[in-house]
Design a protein around this nucleic acid. Structure first.
Lengths: 219, 219
DNA sequence: GTCATCATGTAAGCCGTTACATGATTGC
DNA sequence: GCAATCATGTAACGGCTTACATGATGAC
């Protein structure tokens, strides 16, 4: 779900395609790689659908300007962004040919992102991506997301146990080792999810106790 | 690589498509699912290429007969197989229409499987499948397979460390948790591989010391 | 006699890739 | 001025899925 990745990243910050690609890899440690051949058409699709729009027309590329990489706090970041914007205006020449196309998310895009996050599928590919952007979900739905994935993995584990009984022995050592490792990996995932769920429940309880219901939903 | 799965399974035992599908799921605990829409064309492709052949013409389906599921030792298994084969001959009627098509691997198929296992790609999808059938590799190449995967994962881990430095903070708690969990998962994989590599080296050393070089290569 | 399961196949389509083509900018 | 990297795009193709179509067999 490349669109989820794009919208999730754009929701935080305007970005151009090339930078988006890098950020997508960063999200999920190179397990999630997208090629330009799928990224650019996806951006075009999203633009046609009105979910994103070109924020800054083709302009001269100057690396480091748009991405605003770095660990600045909100205020400082905004300050430097303003300074850069001014500097940019002075130096921008629309040279003929290609330049950056910086995309931003629209209101429809926000809505679409919401839908994508709300979609109940939580497979191995989609779930990590949803976690990466689950901060944009209200706490209740985030909790549901974690619990849905947990029950799914628990199901797989149960299936493997009955499976092991069916297949029984007559299995070679490497296959056995692979299966054991699989089971351990899934258990590791479940343990992680349990921690996430627990933390989420605690924070929910705190919010309810203190009566600040909306605080977690910066939509 | 559905062909690897098919050939790997057929190398142990003749099977028909429907049963193959179930066995493929079993291999890698439902992470690897194939649909009939890809399985049957793949079988047709492999048959056209001469890698597999139809062992038993379309006959009446009688579950449990061909698959020979169960945990029987080699001799007992062979005995019952012979008994079943006799019974089958008596009862086989080629009813018009569809029945099972049981496939077996050919000499070319063995060769192709060898090539597939030898191919150096060890991505998340392919590697587990190769481990599932690595018993068909000579010990040296099996060791190489494990080491190749290990170094690949080590690379990912190194990349993530530098990555973490670049991105720095300004990362939300869920994304941080996701990344930490990713790192742990990869480390878990590496630990597993280290165990496999160690065992492989020990067994190789034993073989070399006892001078039975060929014993591990039932090709 | 009918329903679930077993069993094989085809067709349309989705989602992604690789390979190709183009050009701008930066550092040396 | 030349190479590496940044940057955007297109076209062909690959592999797999879903949905559809068909039919046999066994259990009740």
């Amino acid at each position: 779900m490349i669109e989820l990745a794009i919208l999730g990243l754009l929701r935080e910050q305007d970005l151009h395609g090339y930078e988006l690609k890098k950020r997508i890899q960063e999200l999920h440690g190179s397990r999630l790689t997208v090629s330009f051949g799928s990224l650019y058409p996806a951006l075009a699709r999203l633009e046609a659908a009105g979910a994103v729009k070109t924020v800054e027309a083709r302009s001269v590329a100057r690396p480091g300007t748009i991405p605003a990489t770095g660990s600045l706090s909100g205020e400082a970041n905004a300050f430097f962004a303003r300074r850069r914007a001014l500097a940019d205006r002075d130096r921008d020449r629309v040279t003929a040919g290609r330049g950056r196309k910086v995309y931003g998310i629209t209101d429809e895009g926000h809505q679409y992102l919401d839908e994508l996050l709300d979609d109940p599928t939580t497979d191995d590919k989609t779930f990590p991506l949803k976690v990466a952007f689950c901060r944009y979900l209200p706490a209740e739905r985030r909790l549901e997301l974690f619990e849905r994935r947990r029950s799914q993995l628990a199901g797989v584990l149960a299936g493997e146990r009955t499976n092991r009984r069916r297949v029984g022995d007559r299995i070679d050592q490497y296959l056995r080792s692979l299966r054991e490792h699989d089971t351990e990996s899934i258990q590791h995932d479940i343990t992680w999810l349990d921690r996430l769920i627990d933390e989420e429940r605690q924070s929910l309880a705190t919010i309810n106790r203190d009566g600040q219901g909306q605080e977690d939903h910066p939509s």
